[in-house]
Write a protein that binds this DNA or RNA. Structure first.
Length: 433
RNA sequence: GGCCCUAUCGUCUAAUGGCUAGGACAGCGCCCUCUCACGGCGUAAAUCGGGGUUCGACUCCCCGUAGGGUCACCA
């Protein structure tokens, strides 16, 4: 039995969002850091709200983020076990069937209540330290609707025990649930796991992040062109921070660095803008071939390897990159020259543009193929452009090569196109003037 | 409202009794510049308030205040 077993226990009542996954990420990092097991338990005891599509979404999101799972469980499959334990507790008189006046239209006339010993429960939390709670105020709380329909608290305690969970790493909203779960553990005579309650992730109004308050599904970020490395990195940095000032971490580095003692106590706000920055950084870290492969997958089209280094700098998301491919980076195929573009909407006369392009063509003619690097081309063309007026020289050149109002700079264009194509395009532009 | 948790720049955070309170994102300014971006440099910006403890508090204690969580036959 591994010394550390953590679990992520989402209920399939919605798509997994960046707030919801946070507890899962921390539980995962903690388990892996300690060479332990990470399990996922689908908490689907609420038959009304649980949906298969949401369960699928949870696993899809986890897989995309690269979070590998050692075992999965589903509470709806544990009905027999719950009933067995419920019957044991009732035989021991630790719980009892209570007659009720239904408060809701579909309420039961009988439920199962826990015989509360009304004691002070004190437990140690890895993030918050010692926490004490008088359980008297909980009264004889309901732990099951019937012998075959346990409620959340009972199911959690039974499952954590049966699944060998050693560390319960979950959101801070569960702090006040902990005492009653401990009461159930004591009634069952099962060991108490260690607890770590994570600070909540809040929306811009400081309240718990929820779907209505702008929480975006993980799968939605995928569609927006985010890479999983960025989501994982950014989410990890919400409420946790390694020593040092480095911010861009791979999954492996996060696992190496993660410890509970550096987890923050106060809630953190989700900042879309900083996530965007993390995404760009991770995109830049990708090898050119990996970048091309991801962009191809995202945009569903081949990416010319010559464009990759430019795209990496230019685009903060794969979506932006895909858009650039259709727009300012779409100059490798045939281009349609528009004289008005060449003349910067009339700011430059056809005669001036024509003369400069002819001169540039002559200069370029004399540069060897090996000299067609952005830096060398700039060194050679710069003095001429500066002397003649940069706008009048470089704008027509750039448009002659790209056919576009927006594009990479002319030196980069020459370099990517190569000497022959560069001269050919200048010649074609001259014919239009 | 009861109970519980929390409190450093706008945001994420560093500093676990001794610092000019550091970094990052965003902002602002400058530079780069032929376009759109990217980039470089710089700048402004914080210890919630009040009491203690201490030679010395962001750091420890208490009281306020503020925010959040939780009080379901949801999870």
């Amino acid at each position: 039995m591994p010394k550390v077993v953590t679990r992520f226990a989402p209920s399939p009542t919605g798509n997994l969002n960046v707030g919801g996954i946070r507890a899962g990420i921390f539980a995962y990092l903690f388990a892996r850091h300690n060479g332990g097991k990470f399990i996922v338990r689908i908490e689907d005891t609420d038959k009304e709200r649980s949906k298969k599509e949401f369960e699928d979404n949870i696993f899809e999101s986890l897989a995309w983020l690269g979070i590998d799972i050692d075992a999965t469980y589903r509470q709806s499959k544990h009905a027999a076990r719950y009933e067995e334990l419920l019957r044991k507790l009732i035989a021991e008189d630790k719980i009892y069937v209570a007659k009720e006046e239904p408060k809701e239209p579909d309420g039961r006339s009988e439920v199962i209540r826990f015989r509360n010993p009304n004691k002070i429960i004190s437990f140690f939390d890895a993030v918050h330290g010692q926490i004490e709670f008088d359980t008297t105020e909980l009264k004889d709380f309901i732990i099951a609707k019937s012998f075959t329909e346990p409620l959340f608290h009972f199911a959690v305690v039974v499952d954590d025990w049966d699944e060998g969970v050693t560390h319960v790493v979950r959101g801070e909203d569960h702090i006040s649930n902990t005492p009653r779960q401990i009461l159930i553990q004591e009634a069952l005579g099962v060991p108490r796991p260690k607890y770590a309650h994570l600070p909540l992730i809040v929306s811009s109004d400081r309240s718990k992040l929820s779907k209505r308050k702008g929480a975006v599904a993980i799968t939605e970020y995928k569609k927006l062109g985010y890479v999983p490395e960025a989501i994982l990195n950014y989410d990890s940095f919400l409420g946790w921070h390694p020593a040092g000032e480095k911010e861009i971490y791979s999954k492996e580095e996060l696992i190496t660095e993660f410890t509970l003692d550096r987890v923050q106590k106060s809630p953190a706000m989700f900042d879309e803008t900083k996530l965007l920055w993390f995404n760009h950084e991770h995109l830049k870290k990708l090898s050119d071939s990996e970048y091309a492969a991801r962009l191809k997958e995202f945009a569903q089209k081949d990416v010319d390897p010559r464009l990759v280094p430019l795209l990496k700098e230019h685009a903060k998301t794969l979506k932006e990159a895909a858009k650039a491919l259709e727009d300012e980076f779409d100059f490798l195929g045939g281009i349609a020259y528009k004289p008005e573009f060449l003349l910067q909407g009339g700011k430059i006369t056809a005669e001036v543009a024509s003369n400069h392009l002819k001169t540039l063509s002559e200069i370029l003619q004399n540069i060897p193929d090996e000299g067609f690097t952005p830096a060398q081309l700039k060194d050679i063309l710069w003095p001429y452009a500066t002397d003649q007026g940069r706008g009048e020289v470089l704008w027509p050149l750039r448009v002659a090569l790209s056919g576009r109002e927006k594009s990479p700079d002319p030196f980069t264009l020459c370099s990517i196109l190569g000497k022959a194509e560069t001269l050919e395009r200048i010649a074609q532009a001259l014919q239009k003037l």
